[in-house]
């Protein structure tokens, strides 16, 4: 009995020693020499593997930064949108370089049609895929550039930052957005744009990308940009450009004065996170009241 135990232990022990020796030599033989900086850069990256930087994953991005640092002595052009400035600073510090400050970006939905403003004329009954519906027809509301509302962007978002609002039929972006750009690629109509977050998260943008002439655009959607150029004329900072019956606000030049929002006849220009304006009509009412009081 004791012998059995002893032999079993001995056999297992010898096997393990033999395996350990083999493993050691194999590990030596097939050792991959890797730059230790890759690991340390990889360490500080957010590990989302979202592809927002343009590389397949965080590790590829880390390798790219080191290549760039070795070749060009800078990591310009490489940016991790998820980690933002803080992470890029850390990466630069590891490589002994400095990183440029970049404005954080956020996804912006440039369509406000949806079920409310662009009521459906036909009914789609097929695969839940914007890409397919885009190939099939112009959209339930009839706008050839508008949101199809089938949620390809929602599927593409890995950060729980973009959801379809089923009441309006439009996607909505929340603060979790890290500007990885997956939704921009997923949208077959290029409705989603990455724009700077802006000061205090305030943003002004044209929420329409319809390039049709005013008439047809307005026919399909009550909040379409009809290319009337009113905003273009009123903008004091030359931030607005007109092309293909469509206004575009340059986020860099825009000083958030909100003049364009007021003149837009179709409410196509959106302002986000601004304090509510004093309603004009109300002030008029109060003034008349006060005059009447003074008269009395």
């Amino acid at each position: 009995m004791n012998n059995v135990l002893l032999f079993a232990l001995l056999a297992l022990g010898l096997l393990s020693v033999a395996a350990a020796i083999i493993l050691y030599f194999v590990a030596q033989k097939f050792k991959v020499i890797e730059d230790p900086r890759i690991d340390s850069v990889d360490e500080v990256l957010p590990k989302a593997n979202c592809g927002g930087c343009g590389f397949a994953g965080c590790r590829n991005f880390a390798e790219a930064t080191i290549r760039s640092a070795d070749l060009n002595k800078s990591i310009e052009g490489l940016n991790c949108p998820v980690g933002g400035n803080n992470v890029m600073k850390e990466v630069a510090a590891i490589l002994g370089l400095t990183a440029d400050e970049k404005d954080p970006l956020i996804a912006v939905i440039r369509c406000n049609g949806g079920k409310k403003h662009s009521p459906s004329k036909v009914q789609y009954d097929g695969a839940t895929s914007c890409a397919f519906a885009h190939n099939l027809f112009a959209g339930e509301g009839g706008c050839p550039n508008g949101c199809l509302g089938l949620g390809d962007c929602e599927v593409s978002c890995n950060f729980d930052a973009l959801f379809m609002n089923h009441e309006t039929g439009l996607p909505e972006v929340n603060d979790k957005c890290v500007a990885c750009g997956a939704c921009v690629k997923a949208c077959p109509r290029f409705i989603i744009e990455m724009r700077p977050k802006g000061k205090k998260d305030r943003r002004i943008f044209v929420s329409c990308i319809n390039t049709e002439k005013g008439g047809p655009a307005k026919k399909n959607c009550s909040v379409a940009c009809i290319g009337c150029s009113k905003c273009f004329q009123v903008c004091p900072y030359e931030a607005i450009t007109m092309a293909n019956n469509l206004a575009y606000i340059d986020p860099v030049k825009c000083k958030l004065c909100r003049k364009c929002v007021e003149v837009c006849p179709t409410d196509a220009i959106h302002e986000l996170n601004f304090p509510p304006r004093k309603p004009k009509t109300e002030t008029e009412v109060t003034t008349t009241n006060s005059t009447s009081e003074s008269l009395a």
Binding site: A127, S129, F132
Partner: peptide
């Protein structure tokens, strides 16, 4: 299942 819808898309 909308097989052809997806196949058509994939084909493109």
């Amino acid at each position: 299942r909308p097989l052809l819808d997806h196949i058509r898309l994939g084909k493109g």
